[in-house]
Design a protein around this nucleic acid. Structure first.
Lengths: 211, 211
DNA sequence: GCGTTAAGAAACCGAAGAGTTTCCAAAAGA
DNA sequence: TCTTTTGGAAACTCTTCGGTTTCTTAACGC
């Protein structure tokens, strides 16, 4: 609160508040139809504000997008390292968050899809997305791989290569939707993801099982 | 040759010939900048013809694209099934064509990239790409998986799931280029692909090795 | 009431790009 | 030469979309 309110008509919401509200709505747009498919007219209409107000708060479309990415700093993978004694399959399931519920997950998948689809086309935003999402995720998984190899839980293998192939497998099916695809339901896709982890762990199991 | 040439100015090339030439040039465009990034003005200029002629031969942009896809029926995978007695790793390397040379491969990768990136955005062309490229490839690999399982060369596992995860792994890295990516050279990527096959085969090896 | 600020509605601008059309020159047969 | 067909150059239409501006009304302090 100000001791003295400024002269004219007061803003209906504070700028910060309004920005948040816009980002939240715009996020749905971006995640739904991508960067190119999102129009400022659409966002303004959806927010029930005029383009004038929208452009006052976000001078350009890229600003809005960047704000959305920054706000949406939810990473692709679970950052908190799961407890060491978990079976590897469960640990990976936790890292890939194969347990979270629909709405949360849809948002995450949409974000990943956005990253994969749009980063080529709009170099301006590619860096934002990649640096916020894909890169940290790959790094996280790589260090996890390294750690498991040091423990002897996985056979020696280039850790980044392993991380990469696992991410490609799991996210590949979580994200992509081919017309003739029969992996449509959440259960199907999560089952597929677990299959990936299964094959992956078998493929990287150390020669002499420790047990 | 016609016995009697039609009245007016003869065409410089036959329509069929000219279509082929246009498709070849347009292909470079599509593969380079994607469907959305390719303009009919650009194609016409590149072909050294006018838009009028271009539109006479291809009434719409999608027609040109479809023709390009059809012409480019080079599949992602090698269709001829490799000889049975090949070691599995070599068989898969052959199927994924990890032996072909740069230009050929670049073309293939560009095509796959196009399929992955643009099929979401332009539903009109998604079906063309998917039906020509991704779907047959997945089917081919699935039958191969089934066959190997029947031979006892692979442990029982949902074959389509297996095919899918392998394709995601291999193509994932062949195609994607993250800024911080260190898999840049052809050798790096093919090495990665072989690693994928290695892990995959270890992960699906039958419990009692036959040898 | 008056000045001042907020904000919506809607027109507007400019650039792209798909697709069309007009104009004109070239090249053939008659 | 006259007619006919090809085809390039370029202007044009139409739509979309990012971004700007104008006009108006609402809401406040004074």
């Amino acid at each position: 609160m100000h001791a003295t309110r400024p002269r004219g008509r007061p803003k209906q919401r504070s700028d910060a508040e309004e920005r948040q509200r816009i980002i939240a709505l715009a996020c749905e747009f971006f995640l739904d139809v991508g960067y190119g498919g999102t129009t400022m007219d659409g966002v303004a209409a959806r927010c029930g504000i005029s383009k004038k107000t929208l452009y006052r708060l976000f001078p350009a479309k890229t600003d809005l997008f960047r704000a959305m990415v920054a706000d949406n700093r939810r990473t692709m993978l679970a950052l908190p390292r799961p407890p060491e004694d978990l079976p590897l399959a469960q640990a990976l399931a936790a890292i890939f968050r194969l347990d979270i519920e629909e709405p949360d997950n849809n948002e995450r998948l949409a974000f990943i899809r956005l990253a994969m689809a749009d980063s080529d086309r709009y170099p301006e935003i590619a860096e934002a997305i990649t640096l916020e999402g894909a890169e940290p995720a790959l790094r996280l998984l790589t260090t996890w791989m390294t750690h498991q190899q040091e423990r002897g839980a996985l056979r020696p293998f280039p850790p980044q290569t392993a991380a990469r192939m696992l991410m490609d497998m799991v996210f590949g099916v979580l994200v992509k939707r081919f017309p003739g695809d029969d992996l449509l339901t959440r259960e199907d896709r999560f089952a597929h993801a677990r299959h990936c982890i299964d094959v992956f762990l078998h493929g990287l199991a150390p020669p002499a099982p420790l047990d």
